[in-house]
Write a protein that binds this DNA or RNA. Structure first.
Lengths: 345, 345
DNA sequence: ATCACAACTGGGAGCGCTCCCACGCAACCG
DNA sequence: CGGTTGCGTGGGAGCGCTCCCAGTTGTGAT
């Protein structure tokens, strides 16, 4: 009948019980102190804290998780395919933000790469139950069912980016429209007259937003967007290259291009070089992402920077709010983007 | 007196107990089936597995961790400072490897960024106790005490890279010496006569190894390494730029350079351009890391590729062995590197 | 048929914690 | 002055699992 009440945890580490004994109080009181309950007198609290310090006590996560029915862990889910594409600012930026935000919460970050649809399904099952308190989803595709699945299971979720303008799942995105506008305004402001754009895969919401930003900026400058100046890439270098050649064929006189990704800008640059155009002399170039490629390109590439770290932080804050209050504090957050000017424009 | 034996877990999910009831066996038996114990008859095993499937039972991690005194989680520790430098192939490659290796073990991956020495200390404390079963350390510096600290605490550790040739902590490294040799041999094989090198910070073991590889290859070709052809960078672009100018001043006639990192190669390229040298016409260039920069540089950069994914996998395997058998199966593993030939050489 | 032994199996105890009920006590009410 | 309130506290019960010790059964040898 549970009378052991031993002097130490099985791995030699102190337990709640010992802290209580040392402080001359009950287990409940120590637990209250640890969890910051206000229902403890200051005197008692001090004594307990001293005992904790003396013993070097660290709460046992698993025990706590089991008793409290929470895990103190959130998962960051990354589709495997994407991890390859992860331009460094993206991946590490998000992680840094999440990690920063988690730093003083003692919530753990679980990293989960998902490779196959089968694994995706397994994850949903796995995440349900009390395996994680919440899930952060990154680079979700248009028709990915996971966000809704998790939501329906009652698991707090926050995604990065959104699948459409009507995204129902809580999310944090960056201002793709605004960023594109910034880029195009900048180009026009530098005296460029014929500004073209190379879009990303238009089945991705972000790509559509960037196109929209381009169009708005053109209109704001008093022109009507010209279909001939819009070529679609697919976010890849090769796509950028092909689109650029197309553009140059249609409008040899163009003098600026806004690319919806840095990678496409690299492809575009190659095409421009091949056709004897100088950058930025003949044609000004602007990218999107501000990846390390932009910085080291020759000439260095003007690009739209997304606040990766800020998105990571915001996602985490949102998720924690969702976990805590039963409901996120906003349906969707859009963070501003920023234009980083370099030599290409 | 524990007589509840309820029909369901508190969050509505089935428990071991229910599986046992449904299968008409005791808890112990179900536990044995789940943990793959051989001491169960085939018939019973089948029945239990059916019950598990019927109920969609998933073991409760925390309960299991508490009872078994292990956590089924390993931590990947990354110094924050580095996460910024993380060339994408590095970070995501390691993570992908680790994650792949973990895929069928149901061990979780905890990602921990460490920012300050204070956090480092906290982590050591935290990792002790039964918070994680083992630790993967990445980009450890020469005088980082963490590996030894953890080792002394009896926590299984595997690091990526080593701090010196006498590294005592289990580790997985890539063949820096061999990679450098490959690069230099390639250069010599292409008819280059005066091959210089730009080294990384020589207080890092990897940098010293790459230099050593360079020297060995030079000797193997029948020459004596010439101090004038060795300039030290610090792994940065700026460092590469400065080193290249120095080299060009000392030996205007050099016709090849092996850079200990791609970033330095970019700096070197700038210097070469500034001084009117063409690549690879006048000077051939080889980098190290095979980052995305190498691929997209103009001209694309020949570079030494490290098996990032393989290292991640190997580290994980080693750690798991260490956790399982009380002792890693090797003191240190060195994986081969590979030369990726591109336009710059 | 008897015994020894192995192969399986059931379930008590307990992991370290949180939850919550009940208890003491002091301040406060009419 | 008895009766409330409420704060601060102790500790039983129990989270869902594993461990391990007793059974219980089946097998082969005698």
């Amino acid at each position: 009948m549970a009378v052991s009440r031993r002097g130490t945890g099985r791995d030699g580490r102190p337990t709640l019980e010992q802290v209580a004994a040392r402080a001359g109080v009950g287990r409940g009181t120590v637990s209250r102190v640890i969890n910051g309950s206000p229902r403890v007198s200051d005197r008692t609290r001090a004594v307990v804290q001293q005992a904790i310090a003396d013993l070097g006590y660290v709460p046992h996560r698993a025990a706590r998780a089991l008793a409290a029915n929470r895990s103190d862990a959130i998962a960051l889910v990354v589709p495997e395919v994407e991890s390859r594409l992860f331009a460094e600012p993206y991946f590490s930026g998000i992680i840094r933000g999440v990690s920063l935000e988690l730093a003083d919460t003692d919530i753990q970050l679980l990293l989960t790469l998902i490779r196959t649809p089968k694994e995706r399904a397994r994850f949903a099952q796995y995440a349900s139950g009390n395996r994680v308190d919440g899930v952060l989803l990154v680079s979700v595709h248009k028709d990915d069912p996971l966000p809704d699945q998790l939501s329906e299971l009652g698991i707090p979720v926050v995604m990065n980016g959104r699948r459409s303008a009507e995204e129902m799942v809580p999310h944090v995105d960056c201002d793709n429209v605004g960023g594109a506008q910034l880029a195009v305004e900048h180009l026009i402001g530098r005296g460029r007259r014929t500004v073209a754009t190379i879009t990303g895969s238009l089945d991705m919401y972000a790509a559509r937003c960037r196109l929209e930003g381009y169009q708005e900026a053109i209109r704001a400058a008093g022109h009507e967007p010209d279909e001939e100046l819009i070529a679609s890439g697919d976010f890849s270098e090769e796509g950028g290259h092909a689109a650029m050649r197309q553009l140059l064929t249609r409008r040899p006189s163009l003098d600026a291009v806004f690319c919806a990704s840095d990678l496409m800008a690299i492809g575009a640059r190659r095409a421009l070089r091949e056709l004897g155009r100088t950058i930025p002399g003949d044609v000004a170039l602007v990218g999107f992402d501000d990846s390390s490629l932009a910085q080291h390109m020759d000439p260095s590439l003007t690009s739209v920077r997304q606040p990766m770290e800020g998105m990571g932080r915001a996602m985490t804050r949102t998720l924690l709010a969702e976990i805590g209050n039963e409901g996120p504090d906003h349906p969707g957050l859009v963070l501003p983007t920023e234009l980083v000017r370099r030599a290409s424009s």
